[in-house]
Structure formats: structure tokens, C-alpha cells
Design a binder for these strands. Sequence first.
DNA 1: ACCTGAACACCGTTCAAGT
DNA 2: ACCTGAACACCGTTCAAGT
Lengths: 197, 197
Amino acid sequence: MARRADHSHDEIRAMAVDAAARMIADDGLENLKLRGIAREIGYAPGTLYNVFDSFDELMMRVNAETVDALVAELEAAEHDGAPPDLLDLLAVYGGFAQRHGNRWKAVFDYSLADPTNAPDWYVAKLNAGLAVVERAVARIAGDNPAEAPAETARVLWAGLHGIFSLGAEGNLAIVSRQDTDTLARTFVRMIDRAIRA
Amino acid sequence: MARRADHSHDEIRAMAVDAAARMIADDGLENLKLRGIAREIGYAPGTLYNVFDSFDELMMRVNAETVDALVAELEAAEHDGAPPDLLDLLAVYGGFAQRHGNRWKAVFDYSLADPTNAPDWYVAKLNAGLAVVERAVARIAGDNPAEAPAETARVLWAGLHGIFSLGAEGNLAIVSRQDTDTLARTFVRMIDRAIRA
DNA sequence: ACCTGAACACCGTTCAAGT
DNA sequence: ACCTGAACACCGTTCAAGT
């Protein structure tokens, strides 16, 4: 059938990404199906292959929007009020991860086959987020830091990811008396102490 | 057909778990299929449902063996020679993760729907591994540590998991000049410094 | 030119039918 | 009693057929 042209390809792409983000938020990544997205936006499954190369590409765009939103919040924390310290940034990150739990989990659970050839604009976004952390680290590190702020920022980012991802799956609760937020704050406080030591 | 009884149920279980572990090591979790395991051990797919409740249960046993092997190496590091410090334990962990990359990744990539009701013996194994770290932390923490060694051990475990899992997926390489091992050592060194501070 | 939706090649899981 | 393997209900993906 068809030749509807109710929407341009760009519009269909945007509708699909928005629908997928909403469906992930509501039901989790594990319940997201290409067929479901198609149904949601009123197009046939095949149509999505007209506007995306694959399900991978669709998910990559969904996750990029999620990263975008977090980076925007981190940058906002820097621009209004006093410069944020590490615990301030943790509160932003933790708040985002809590408000957008399923979507944030999807960013890591749906990893591309080969991140090495992630698009430049995606890597740039990640680096923009890391730069905020980097500046907060540099602010407290003084003149001769034992580690470069860039390296410390990446350790913080990856370490927090470990705590939140294990926490989200429930793998922390079974071996820890402290909850995820407490462990995250302890982690950040220890890194802060190490920077100043 | 059938009534072979070439093997007991216990034997079939062991054969399936061994085959799955080997297949994960060779080809990665993403290429492991129940049908493939059945073919490998010379039984029909349906037979695996005779001896396991589900694919989940099979994977749980595979992952338990992997955790077992790591914990054994950590405990061995404690029993021969001088008490290990945190960097010694990191070397054991990092060495294991490198030698058994695909199998170690599978432990976290294949998470149970609800870890809350993980079997007790599984939780006990995890806690045994954490206890080794805990003792190493306590050894350097002195009398009035800012954080309980048990909490520090869990922060270390989860943080390292973050670094190694992001590293394994290639998500660290695209935003970091340092490689995974360097970041892991920096992380452990900073936590060590925070404990002593 | 564009979209459809049946068809394809999978998957984990079930269960009637054989020995 | 035990194992088989076809069948079921899915999945992402493709593509001939319609408008």
C-alpha cells in the first residue's frame, strides 16, 4: 500500500526516538521492541528500516539524547551559583540517574558492538560532561596534583558508573548494608580526600 | 525416541555448564545459544529443560563457577606469602579479568531478573571475595578509620567493576588517554591514599 | 517514490509422541 | 521414565508487491 508522506523522514525519525525514549522510561529497555515502536507511531516495522539503518542506530540516537540531557544538567550546575564541588556534581548525577533510571540504564546496557567508531558528536558530548567534572577536580587539586584532573575525572566517572549500575541491578543490595546513594557519597568523599592529600 | 540414560542428570548439568563456559570464553556471551549448548553435548534442546528450570538457571551456574574461580585466586593471594595490599589484589583481579575476559563480562552482562533472591551460596561466595578485600583495607586503615573497611571494600569492588566493564566495552578508550589498567591502578592508589589520610 | 506486511531466519520454551 | 524434535510464540530484518 502506502505513499502516505504524512511525515518527512526526519519527522518519522524524531517520532520513533521520542516514542522509544518514553517506552524505555515506562517499561524498561528489555521490553522495547522495534515492532512496538512502529505500532506506537502508526507505521509498519519495515518503515523504520527506511529511515534507520538498524535497530542499533535508533538506540544510539535514543541514548545520545539521554546523555545530552545529563550533560546539560551538569553544565547548568556550573553556570548558576557557586562553582559545584564533587558532591554537588554527584547530587546532579544521582538525581538524574534516579529520575531517568530506565533510560540511564539503557545507555550502558545497550552498548554498540564497537564503540571505537562512535560518531564524533557523541564522543564530544561525553567529553563535555567529563570536562565539568575535570574543572571541579582542578579547583580543589592545587598546583601539583598527584594525578592529572582529566584522569581523576575519568576514574570518578567510571567508578560511579560501577556503583550505580551494580546498584540498579540489585547486585549491591545483596552484599552491602549501605544503600547505593550512601556508597556513592562515600566513594566521592574518598576521592575528594585523595585529591587533597 | 530415547531413554538413553548415558548420563545422570547431574552429569548432563555439569556437561552443559562446562560447555557453556568454554563457548562463552571462545565466542562471547552474545553468541551463546541454548540450542548450541545442546548440540555441543549431544542432547536435544528439550533435554536441557529436563535438568534446568530455564536458560537463566544454567547461566547462573556458569557465572557462579566464574565467581568461584576469582574468589579462589584472591584467597590464594592471601595464603601464600606476605599479606597482599590493595595493588596486589588489583593485580589478581585484573589478571583474572584479562585471562577470562568473556567469562568475567558474562557475570555482569547476564544479570538475573531479580538478584534479591539469588541463592544464599552465591551471595556467600561474593561475600568471601569481599572479605579478602576487607581484610586488606583493615590492615592499612589503623584504629579509627573514617569509613568502615566493609564499606570501603564494597566501594572498591563496585568502582573497579565500573572501570573494567566500561573498559571492556571500549567506552573508556574513546574518552581517555590512559588505558584501563592505568585507570584501575590510579583508582586503587587514590582509595589507598584516602584510607591513610 | 514510498510504505506495507508477509516471509525469512532465527530465538527460548513447551509438550505430544516415541522407545 | 526419559529424551526427542516438531511446534509455538516470539524477535530483528528483508523485499516483492501494492498504491
